[in-house]
Design a protein around this nucleic acid. Structure first.
Length: 819
RNA sequence: GCGACUGUGGCGAAACUGGUAUACGCACGAGACUUAAAAUCUUGCGCCGUCAGGCAUGCGGGUUCGAGUCCCGCCAGUCGCACCA
């Protein structure tokens, strides 16, 4: 028998056993409740990083725990395999993105296997494979027919030197990352998905997601940004035409002193035609990237266009300004400015000497003039003709009605959410299944011609996408008229693949349809685990796709993820691990030195799952030390295993000893707490509990209580089974505790063992700790109070004072309030 | 700039509904075993104070018999902001 803990050998043997027995293979089974446990699939960047290890360890703990609780568990894994890094690597190493990606997948799969996750590998998918993305293309063609996919222009980052579109992360301080050239905004045609058509449902259904963190739901609500207000039409004072603005404060309409438009607004370019200074200013506004964080933090600037619009109620001529803080993508790209009641407008008006008209005042009196800041609260209207004297809320509604009667506006609901631009001008992505025909326009690729396969054997030269230069790819014939036509050469945003993979895991081998009935068995995902950085975009898009798939009749449920756990980042020296900072820890080296169980235990123990985790090499040592102690005690107990009597009678006989009884109570109290923590997903304290259990069991062992020791150890191994599955399984087998630990029943605390005759109370005088009191568990409030008043240290602190009140919290404390 | 979150010993953290602040670890000190070291085991460990006791959960207020926990206002850090995934 081997006595020292040798995790690598042990773990390999155990993993081979799982593979032989197909232990994690999941099949539909209506006799048990199902539990679909999903961790966000990785981008195959080359090697696993600690964030992956943490993510998948948390998911694995949940999967294994639920299996022991009697659930039919599915835990799949796959690869988010399209994306920009493969193109960058291809240019750098002169390889094809496909080859690089596949070799990364092979390596990372082997890494995942050494970590011992309970994954059903038979369901593995890679999104860059045609048998996956063909169904995404199929859905897009359906959505095109339904009008949920459409084409319009969108703004992108343009690098004028490299003549290419840049991702936001490739724009650094307003310059292209390779060329260093100043980036410009440019309008190009793109395909969009009409997510705004689902805005109300995406908002409303957040309320049914009880298993989601409140902060994620709050972020999604704010992102969707539903606001009720009014649209107001301003006719041009010079020439024909009008512009429309959206406002949530129609009550301040009489205070509008100018209108601001985005640099891309048609009126701006029209006015710039004969004004070189204005044209130059518009060019300046177009400099820099499209990222909202950059736009929002830049200095507020504007310039008068010389044009005016007519105020719909007063008929006044208001000047139109171009302002760099107005976004073309929100609303109509124009805002009415009310400096007296909007802080941003106030700042702008002050900067450029524009008038400030107060039209709302607090109910309790007029504002002091001149204003030093905008008055943004609600109030009572003034200087607003017939509306003067009305409260804001009432005036707002009335104003919209009056505008509507005049044909100058209407009540409107506006969303901050914009339609989802899915076109990318890149190679390594899913081809958009559309054919452009001079005769028939844009024609979806017919179902029988799908998939549109992305050629994998290409040369990346760093300038443009290979399929845009590949006539064999883009030359085709029109499916409608048979005439010569061209394929779309843009590919899709990789968020599209990750928006439905969770459903495909249910039936990855289905070649005749996107999904089949197995999806309705497994879905919705019972537990989704992934990084908080995905709180908005990925999760919103996946929710959207779930509803799209529902509405084409593929699935029946409304929401994809019933519960969500957003795990925190892995830090070292207080900073995110990254190559550039040189503070990475390689999971591979860690596993080779200490084994997967130590890595898993450390990660679970060190921080609660939702918080960031600070890496500590000595913490890893501590985890390893603990597992060695478990192993050592397990070895000792193995020898006595066969002869140990663990019957209720044997346990009762041992408990005649007060020390043993107290220790056994501690075991069950710790277990009760661990179960509570497991249920609320606070796994770090479950790991703590396993350490406390070992401490207590060692004392039981020293005390010679063989039955209680073995009972405690069998509890410990089951509590550890989800966290350190290899160690738990090996010792469970050696101690002959019956079957395999992953199929053992999850332990519950013995209520009998938890009962106690005496309880300890805390004594306080005026809220300050002054002593302790041991009383019978059955003692009454009066008895407790009487005892408390006789306690020497309490008497000392009551000297010269009169007790005014006595607070007794049963089982906890007595507080004597005196003065 | 906007939205969301976090802040407790030297360090990671615990404290369920407001009820003994610092569980469980790490680091460190002392001791045992050893020729020695490693490993292992035992033990101590918030700060100030000789004791009595006092002070401590980012900072400033408030509610309460009692606040790490609830409320208000600050400060610092982290995540997201639509073409990184």
């Amino acid at each position: 028998m081997e006595h020292s803990y040798q995790p690598r050998l042990l773990e390999q043997a155990i993993q081979q056993g799982w593979e032989r027995q197909q232990t994690w293979r999941a099949t539909e089974d209506t006799s048990r409740p199902k539990y679909y446990c999903l961790s966000m699939f990785p981008y195959p960047s080359g090697r696993l990083h600690m964030g992956h290890v943490r993510n998948y360890t948390i998911g694995d703990v949940l999967a294994r725990y639920h299996r022991m609780k009697g659930f039919n568990v599915l835990q799949p894994m796959g690869w988010d395999a399209f994306g920009l890094p493969a193109e960058n690597a291809a240019v750098k190493n002169a390889t094809a993105p496909a080859a690089w990606t596949y070799s990364n997948i092979d390596y990372m799969r082997s890494q995942l296997r050494t970590l011992g996750f309970a994954i059903d590998w038979s369901r593995e998918i890679a999104t860059c494979k045609p048998d996956y993305y063909r169904w995404e293309q199929w859905l897009i063609t359906r959505l095109l027919e339904k009008g949920l996919v459409y084409r319009k222009t969108g703004t992108v980052n343009w690098d004028p030197v490299d003549q290419t579109v840049l991702a936001n992360e490739q724009v650094i301080d307003g310059r292209g990352w390779r060329s260093g050239a100043l980036v410009e905004k440019r309008e190009i045609p793109m395909y969009y998905m009409r997510i705004t058509a689902y805005a109300d449902e995406l908002l409303a259904d957040l309320d049914q997601l009880e298993g989601w963190p409140e902060q994620v739901k709050a972020m999604q609500r704010n992102w969707i940004g539903r606001s009720e207000g009014a649209e107001v039409r301003f006719d041009y004072a010079e020439g024909e035409g009008h512009l429309t603005v959206f406002t949530t404060r129609a009550d301040t309409l009489y205070g509008a002193t100018y209108v601001a438009v985005a640099a891309e607004h048609p009126l701006a370019s029209e006015a710039a035609a004969d004004q070189p200074a204005l044209a130059a200013f518009i060019e300046e506004c177009k400099r820099g990237g499209v990222a909202e964080a950059d736009v929002a933090t830049q200095e507020k600037k504007g310039m008068a266009t010389g044009r005016h619009v007519i105020h719909p109620l007063t008929g006044a001529r208001l000047p139109v300004w171009v302002a760099n803080y107005v976004l073309m993508s929100y609303g109509e790209g124009a805002v009415m400015a009310v400096p007296a009641h909007d802080q941003r407008d106030f700042d702008f008006a002050t900067q450029y000497g524009l008038p400030i008209h107060v039209v709302v005042q607090p109910a309790d009196g007029p504002l002091e003039l001149p204003l030093t800041e905008a008055y943004t609260a609600q109030g009572v209207l003034v200087n607003s003709e017939d509306f003067s004297g009305r409260p804001s809320e009432e005036a707002r509604v009335k104003m919209a009605t009056v505008l509507q009667a005049l044909g100058s506006g209407a009540p409107r609901i506006q969303y901050r959410l914009r339609d989802w631009g899915i076109s990318r001008q890149r190679y390594w992505g899913c081809p958009i299944p559309i054919i452009h025909c001079a005769q028939c326009g844009e024609v979806p690729v017919p179902e029988q011609d799908l998939p549109v396969v992305l050629p994998e054997d290409v040369v990346m030269d760093g300038v443009g996408s290979p399929i845009k230069k590949d006539a064999a790819f883009y030359t085709t014939t029109c499916p409608t008229c048979g005439g010569p036509a061209q394929r779309e050469t843009d590919t899709m945003d990789t968020f599209v693949e990750s928006s439905w993979y969770f459903a495909r895991y249910a039936c990855p081998d289905q070649t005749g349809a996107m999904l089949d009935q197995r999806a309705n068995y497994w879905l919705p995902v019972d537990q989704y685990v992934g990084g908080i950085e995905h709180a908005i975009l990925h999760l919103l898009y996946a929710r959207f796709f779930n509803k799209l798939m529902r509405d084409v009749g593929l699935i029946t449920h409304d929401e994809p993820f019933s519960r969500l756990l957003t795990q925190g980042m892995v830090l070292k020296d207080g900073a995110k691990m990254s190559k550039s900072k040189g503070n990475t820890v390689d999971p591979q080296a860690l596993i080779e030195e200490f084994g997967a169980d130590t890595a898993r235990f450390f990660i679970i123990f060190t921080s609660p799952p939702e918080q960031s985790l600070e890496w500590s090499d000595s913490g890893v040592q501590g985890a390893f030390r603990f597992l060695k102690r478990v192993w050592a005690l397990g070895q000792t107990l193995t020898d006595a295993a066969a002869t140990t009597d663990t019957s209720t009678a044997a346990l009762a006989a041992e408990a005649a000893d007060a020390t043993v009884r107290d220790l056994r109570r501690e075991v069950h109290a710790t277990l009760r707490q661990a179960n509570y923590d497991m249920a609320r997903q606070q796994f770090n304290t479950v790991a703590s509990a396993s350490m406390k259990l070992l401490n207590t069991i060692e004392k039981l062992h020293t005390a010679g209580a063989a039955a209680a020791t073995r009972e405690g150890f069998s509890i410990l191994l089951r509590v550890l089974a989800p966290i350190t599955p290899h160690l738990a399984e090996a010792l469970w087998g050696r101690l002959a505790l019956g079957g395999a630990v992953y199929d053992a029943t999850w332990p519950t605390a013995d209520e009998q063992a938890l009962t106690r005759d005496q309880v300890e109370l805390v004594l306080q005088v005026n809220g300050k700790l002054r002593g302790n009191l041991e009383v019978e568990a059955t003692a009454s409030r009066e008895e407790i109070e009487a005892l408390a008043r006789t306690h020497p240290n309490v008497l000392k602190h009551l000297e010269g004072l009169t007790v005014r009140k006595v607070v007794v919290v049963p089982g906890r404390l007595v507080n004597l309030v005196a003065n």
